[in-house]
């Protein structure tokens, strides 16, 4: 009882796979602001200006030859300590698309400055983006404009800071309970050499003073 294609499902359509250059060409023809780039180890991607992302996403999903019907992953990272040329302190949001109809992939990236990290939401294009974007907002602090429910998803609502930013300061206490054990010292993670002077994203709000047993909590 294997792989009998269910009737009427066009998801099993015979593959008509496009390679990355062809996909890029097609997208750039419709949206000239999009640039085809490749990462330091030669992984191709499309760099899209933030304002264009919804239109590009809709095209990627709806164009008959592209048909990127699934958003396999949406994530982001902080470039501020990445040895990029030229150095930058931006945040990257990356969309990993896959087409079940044609069985091809695409990586789309958006780069936003960390002080005004805002990208329009694509949750209207792929429903699953709703969750992914909440996660990126929570952990990286990229705001998704017009998102239906942009709330923290992993950390508690009153958490301070966005942990996956490279300048994140570990909490000293939460809910009045110290983060570290008595006598435990905090060892800051091994810091790679900083590339660009990154201004702190959000001024850290005052925390309740740690209780006496707080140990020597020190922010990295």
């Amino acid at each position: 009882m294997t792989s009998a294609a269910p009737a009427g499902s066009e998801l099993q359509a015979p593959s008509s796979k496009l390679d990355n250059a062809a996909i890029a060409e097609r997208v750039i023809a419709a949206h000239p602001t999009v640039a085809a780039r490749s990462s330091d180890n030669g992984q191709p991607y499309l760099l899209v200006p933030p304002a264009e992302i919804v239109r590009v996403a809709t095209l990627l999903r709806d164009d008959a030859a592209l048909r990127f019907d699934s958003l396999m992953d949406l994530t982001g990272w902080d470039l501020s300590k990445y040895p990029a040329t030229p150095p930058s302190s931006d945040l990257v949001v990356a969309y990993f698309l896959h087409s079940l109809a044609h069985r091809h992939h695409l990586t789309v990236k958006v780069q936003v400055p960390r002080e005004a990290a805002e990208v329009p939401t694509v949750s209207g294009v792929w429903a699953v983006a709703n969750y992914f974007e909440r996660e990126v907002w929570d952990l990286l602090g990229v705001r998704f404009a017009e998102h239906p429910n942009l709330k923290r998803i992993m950390t508690p609502d009153d958490w301070i800071g966005h942990p996956l930013r490279k300048d994140y300061a570990y909490p000293q206490s939460y809910n009045g309970v110290a983060h570290l054990r008595e006598g435990q010292r905090f060892e800051p993670p091994p810091a790679p050499k900083p590339a660009a002077a990154a201004p702190p994203a959000a001024p850290p709000a005052p925390r309740p003073p740690p209780p006496a047993s707080g140990g020597g909590a020190a922010a990295p």
Binding site: L11, M72, W126
Partner: peptide, 8 residues
């Protein structure tokens, strides 16, 4: 099927 794909 379409829903399953859209919701990842």
């Amino acid at each position: 099927a379409a829903e399953a794909v859209a919701y990842g």
